[in-house]
């Protein structure tokens, strides 16, 4: 996949001395869905705002399809659509007018057929003549997406698209993103919701304190960092782990009823067979056995904590 957005050593410091971005390097591939995960204040919005031209970088470069965002701002901005985090819309304007305005503002000639396609795709066509203030929060978010898509961008930034959105609408939003990807649009979304990244992203980037901690293929990331745990529940609680069983990988729950064994699924030997045999030899009776795989959320929390430490 060719690179469509190339970010090199991007830094942003504010007047107060706060460094929102500390030298970010990132290559976004054409046609992918990249999820940027990070806690509040990590620098996600600053990164997006800089690429889109809303904030100016202190140093570093960004190119979109080979055009620099400063010297070639007309080319880069024409290719980019931005859905901001906050719902910023003119309350008294009609849906169709505000979407038409967006298309024109980005230099595209009026094309009502194109706008109809976008509005229909977002289930907004019935609402096209409604005033924005009359719409529900979810509908307003769709209007923001329609505005961002009005000029047929090749790259779409979604800044927390599902913050404060109910479950059903979130699923709808994921479908919309999937449709856009099918149309060949490159999508970068920021999110707090790990499950969102897990559900729709191709690659995941983790940002904390203005630094990009990692960017990796989602499946690979989960496999690499994914730990699996085997929980062995005992019929009778024990006070300590029998000597024959003691190892770094094995811990006992506080109430003494569960042994937790951590292992790597890709290791040649997981040690499960030996463990279970040893448990039986030690005279312990099993009540239940189950396994648990760490989610992206666990991985994320580990990473951010490591960075803070």
């Amino acid at each position: 996949m060719p690179t469509i957005v190339d970010i090199k050593n991007l830094r942003k410091s504010y007047d107060g001395g706060f460094e929102a971005l500390k030298g970010v390097n990132l290559e976004i591939e054409e046609g992918e869905i990249l999820a940027l995960l990070g806690p509040n204040g990590a620098g996600k919005t600053t990164l997006i705002s800089t690429i889109c031209g809303i904030t100016t970088a202190t140093s570093g470069t960004v190119t979109v399809s080979g055009h620099d965002i400063i010297t070639g701002y007309r080319e880069t901005r024409s290719m980019i659509g931005l859905v901001p985090q906050e719902i910023n819309l003119e309350p008294f304007e009609k849906v169709i007018n505000t979407v038409r305005f967006s298309r024109g503002l980005f230099g595209k000639p009026r094309d009502d057929a194109a706008l109809e396609k976008i509005l229909r795709q977002l289930s907004l066509w019935d609402k096209k003549d409604s005033q924005i203030r009359a719409l529900s929060g979810g509908m307003k978010r769709r209007v923001l997406i329609a505005k961002a898509l009005a000029h047929d961008p090749r790259v779409l930034f979604l800044d927390e698209p599902t913050a404060g959105v109910d479950v059903e609408l979130r699923k709808d939003m994921w479908e919309i993103v999937a449709d856009l990807k099918a149309d060949g649009v490159t999508i970068i979304l920021t999110t707090h919701y790990i499950e969102e990244a897990e559900a729709i992203a191709d690659r995941v980037g983790v940002i904390a304190h203005g630094e990009l901690l990692l960017v990796e293929d989602k499946a690979k990331l989960m496999a690499r960092m994914g730990k699996k745990q085997l929980e062995v529940q005992l019929t009778k609680p024990i006070k300590t782990i029998p000597k024959a069983l003691q190892s770094d990988a094995l811990t006992l729950s506080k109430d003494g009823t569960t042994l937790v064994y951590s292992y790597d699924t890709r290791a040649e030997r997981t040690g499960i067979t030996k463990l279970l045999a040893d448990v039986a030899d030690a005279g312990l009776v099993l009540a239940d056995v189950m396994t648990r795989q760490s989610s992206l959320e666990d991985i994320f929390v580990d990473l951010v904590q490591e960075d803070a430490a």
């Binding site: 031209g53 809303i54 080319e75």
Partner: peptide, 9 residues
């Protein structure tokens, strides 16, 4: 809504 103006070409 000024964000749109600032991010437009």
């Amino acid at each position: 809504t000024i964000f749109e103006l600032l991010s437009a070409p």
